[in-house]
Design a protein around this nucleic acid. Structure first.
Lengths: 234, 234, 234, 234
DNA sequence: CATGAATGAGCTTTCATTCAT
DNA sequence: CATGAATGAAAGCTCATTCAT
């Protein structure tokens, strides 16, 4: 008989409608430890480079438990991605802006995104890994559709208010501005190692970071500034 | 251990100071075929995910030849990166701009970078892979220092001319503008798969590409526009 | 990336149209040693019970070589079955009978089958294992159709001659007689271990074997004897 | 080693000398469900191929219960074999023959065995599996000796009566006739999958089954017919 | 008795690499 | 230079079994 590669049904740690007891809490702890370890190791080595036993060891658990809770290496990786998206969305949801000051609120969005990337470097490497795989794994997640960014909506409110007050031009979309913010922060951090070769200088000193943050804010403010402030071509 | 032994001295295909004969030409062809195949496969699967025998098969050669020419899987990967940088720098060097029209020249730089990324998708995935590994491999390349971007210098010339003519502000650096251009193009293409989940829309249609290119050009023009055109904060 | 379970193309040891050199001969020896070891071990422990590393060790080779030559455990098992059928058919083909003495020739067929089973116990256990799996593996063999028994044809000749001479009845088919011969020999040997429990006696002494052989011959002779010799029912 | 520890004392479901209560009945049901599931799965996949958790799942119970009731996988397998023998012996015991008609009674025995095999295919595959293991498991059963076949005794009576009446020859033993009956039925069913390859025809149609049953009956009648009816050799 | 979690050995298979013509 | 065979470590995954409520 050949081995059946069909992934067995993985256990969800806590069943709904049941108060978790001591056992269940311990189980949840095991599951969480594996998930955290996997996040770290997949972020560091990618999906192919991340070894199952490295993860289980880092979680002070056993290979077997990975299959018990997540069904397969891929199942674990998908769970890591889902958790990553969830945490990012949660963080974005907590973003509280003063809409009365659109220009400052805009800067605040930039700072939020930039700082999130800086404080969660695994966010970047995991997304890169997933994009290397052409989104194959996240596509398998049943929750793949739930992850549309709250920040884009918030940013839409900010822009709208700014337009009303004549501070912003009306021809930019929240989507494009959000992408710009994300791009400038993400790329700088994501590609810092190869950038050194291209630029011939350090890009990861506190001063360099601060300078780049200021540059992003400035560029974004200019991008949304009313159109008539731009000089004619030439 | 057979897996990671001391790397033996790899052969360079064509020894300098010797006219290549028929044999040497065949050898060069083999070497090139391997390099091309490796570029494709490492770009698709990453360093860990790319299999040696997949590469040798794709090159219609043999595993053994990879070790003959490149010493090891890592040696091959480094050669791929060097070749990648070299080709990119060559392309940048061919960039001919009309400095008499700084604003148009600036847009031309954006278009060049954006199109290079679009036409060479393996450039992006290979750089991402290398950054995942924290630049570990390219650091081993003896030619690592040679790759500072010609485009940054050219862009410096463009900006300088624009400032002279009062078209650009004098407080932005070529480095920052170049990073901005690169970031906005790179990120959009690199992260297209996960962006779908975040944005809930296609980002890879011809129209979407055209729109984003226009947005980048506009944002960059605004970033370098004289400072006094920006409205006061509020 | 998930592991690709697709079986790679296994090597045939000696390519046609090429005189085997020293290397090829050694390779063939390796392949043969694995095949022999696998025959022994699958016969002893079944397909599931037979361990890959047990086989490679018994063949004084390496696990890896099994995959090199046979692609997978299942591929090896199929090769074992093909070899088993081939050897049996070859042995049957060598069966030389004196058709001038149909009665003696018939007994000779019984002795041949019985002795083949006795001398090749792995033939029985391997067939049993394959039948446990409902013929799943042999069905995958491209040579599955080539194994119709030569002995049935030979037996047909014997019966025909006997009928002509009035020694045998004309209403039995070679197929049925062959099945009878095979059944009585095969079952006795195949089930000898559980038969002990049923019968409460040894069935594997030389005397017991000789007695059973004589009984089969007698029963088969009676089965083909002319119909009018049978007494009426009662 | 966790894999093959000393077998702990398994529980018998219902202790003798105690009226089973509700709990005991539920326990018995669990035990029976496991036994039935195990019979099915060991019959289908053999001992090595049958998975403990496949069995517990099929029985809608838990792995743990198998160890509770049967001590180990092997203990369960032995229980399956014991149950198999017991049921077969019970069925044989229910065999009621009209000794006044020995010839018909003989045919009845053939029909009984043949139909039992046909209706209980797991009987065959489980016996084959046990014979593959050289009777290792059944030898461990404390009840191994109790299973001598009632049918052999009954068959002895039939033959004796037939001899008295001059219908059968006196030189055949009940054992040999029983083996002949068993062999011809068992082999035909057990080896049906590989027989297709040898014979190049279907062996499992209703017509083929009926023909073979008739052939067995005829062959057995001829085997026990008085010796003088056989023609001289030639 | 039932049930979820834990355990660690061992399984099949794959990998990068080297040997020997 | 090319090519088939060999090598051994290690990968992902599964197994029977036990622990602890």
């Amino acid at each position: 008989m050949t081995r059946a590669p069909a992934t067995p049904a993985p256990r969800r740690a806590v069943r709904p409608g049941r108060r978790p007891g001591v056992r269940a809490a311990a189980a949840q702890a095991t599951r969480d430890a594996i998930l955290r370890a996997a996040t770290r190791i997949f972020a560091k080595h990618g999906f192919d480079g991340g070894r199952v036993d490295q993860i289980s060891k880092a979680a002070k658990s056993y290979d077997r438990m990975i299959y018990y809770y997540f069904g397969s290496k891929e199942g674990l990786y998908i769970a890591v991605l889902e958790d990553l998206y969830r945490r990012f969305n949660e963080a974005e949801s907590r973003l509280a802006l003063d809409l009365a000051q659109p220009d400052e609120a805009l800067a605040e969005v930039v700072r939020f995104v930039w700082n999130y990337y800086r404080r969660n470097p695994e966010f970047i490497t995991l997304l890169n890994t997933e994009n290397l795989h052409r989104g194959r794994h996240i596509a398998k997640s049943p929750r793949a559709g739930d992850y549309s960014s709250p920040a884009v909506r918030v940013l839409g409110d900010v822009l709208e208010r700014g337009v009303e007050r004549g501070l912003f031009r009306s021809t930019v979309t929240a989507r494009d501005v959000y992408l710009m913010i994300a791009a400038m922060g993400y790329f700088y951090l994501s590609n810092r190692y190869t950038l050194s070769a291209f630029l011939g200088e350090r890009t990861d000193t506190p001063e360099a970071f601060a300078r780049w943050e200021a540059f992003i804010i400035d560029a974004v403010r200019r991008a949304v500034a009313p159109p008539d402030v731009l000089p004619p071509r030439g």
